[in-house]
Design a binder for these strands. Structure first.
Lengths: 207, 207
DNA sequence: GTCTATATCGCGATAGAC
DNA sequence: GTCTATCGCGATATAGAC
């Protein structure tokens, strides 16, 4: 029975993953304080007390959710570093990747957005240590392009702010966009239109 | 003593205004569920029970806050309608007004953003009735410009989405921006840079 | 690891004196 | 209109049997 431990480990991991997934969904809808552990437990299919066996406090669960959100994001957004590609291609890929994240993981984006809007009471330290260097790296890439004359002169920091804002809003403000567009949820065509618009705006300014 | 009623009315109104102001601040920080009436009461300088005398339930207070936020926004954003001005000037004014709102009323913007991110559980009806027509009117202005050949061909809906996203983010994501910029709060210069960047991007695309 | 039971607390809201 | 007192509920978290 040497498979038994593996199976146990796997099912334990699977249960934790199910809890995390449920937690992302509920936190995205109701925020940290507005979320009841019972809602998460119900969605994950176990009791509230049992949930507290795997995650001893609500805040620890919340921090782990934020960590997972950040990891998923980092996995996808290491785009600008490829020195082989020209800026226009890299910018297009960057915008596309961020829009894909907004489409495929809207709850992740919303949990993070709520934390930031609240002033990052829980996550400020991690933002400073893990997110800030990443953003500065992206800005540095823009600066290098500018110095090499590959793109027009721009305020690189605010250019990056603009790109985040436009792409992220397709997750965070999806409910308002659905209202305007007349259908819910946003579909593939909406994201294609979004990508076209954003890429055109950015490239028409910097190239 | 015919001034007495006026004075009373005025101080009652003043107290209600103080409560509303405190409520905007706390709701912006903690969201609806995360806000304790006691926090609002303390910030407004009265007891929780007395607050409930002026606003009988938490939800009613929250809805009045959202209404006030919306009214403040509507007051400032009726910009695009002037048929005398050319599109470039109107777009610049529109972006400037929305950025000014993000700068002067960041809490208002954040309360609204949190409500939208949560899927607008409380405010969906009002959004449909009061905000949607306004947005459609702005989009219609873009469409008219396009039809008249005054601006380049664009997806007007997503253009408006982009402008909201970029301008609104200077309120909602201010804590993240402060981290990158290395100072808090955002200052006049940051907003000047933002305006320049956003206006250039939009105009380089459509004009 | 999962269950029943429960401790403990903070919150929204109400009652009633003044 | 403001105060003291308190109800009732739902929440996080813990204890202990199995």
């Amino acid at each position: 029975m040497d498979r038994a431990p593996d199976k146990l480990t796997r099912s334990r991991d699977a249960l934790q993953a199910r809890i995390m997934q449920a937690a992302v969904e509920v936190f995205a809808e109701s925020g940290y304080a507005g979320t009841a552990l019972a809602s998460i437990a119900e969605r994950a299919g176990l009791s509230k007390q049992n949930l507290l066996y795997y995650f001893p406090t609500k805040q620890i669960l919340y921090e782990k959710v934020l960590d997972q959100v950040l990891d998923q994001w980092l996995d996808r957004m290491n785009i600008l570093a490829d020195p082989e590609q020209d800026p226009a291609t890299l910018l297009r890929n960057y915008i596309r990747a961020k829009l894909r994240f907004s489409r495929e993981q809207p709850q992740a984006s919303r949990v993070y957005a709520m934390e930031v809007i609240s002033g990052a009471p829980v996550y400020a330290e991690t933002m400073r240590n893990k997110i800030l260097p990443l953003l500065q790296k992206d800005i540095a890439v823009f600066e290098a392009w500018m110095a090499a004359g590959k793109i027009a002169a721009v305020n690189t920091t605010h250019l990056l702010f603009a790109i985040w804002a436009m792409t992220q809003s397709y997750a965070d403000f999806a409910s308002q966009m659905s209202l305007v567009l007349g259908h819910s949820p946003l579909d593939e065509n909406d994201f294609t239109e979004a990508e076209t618009m954003i890429v055109e705006m950015v490239l028409s300014r910097v190239c």
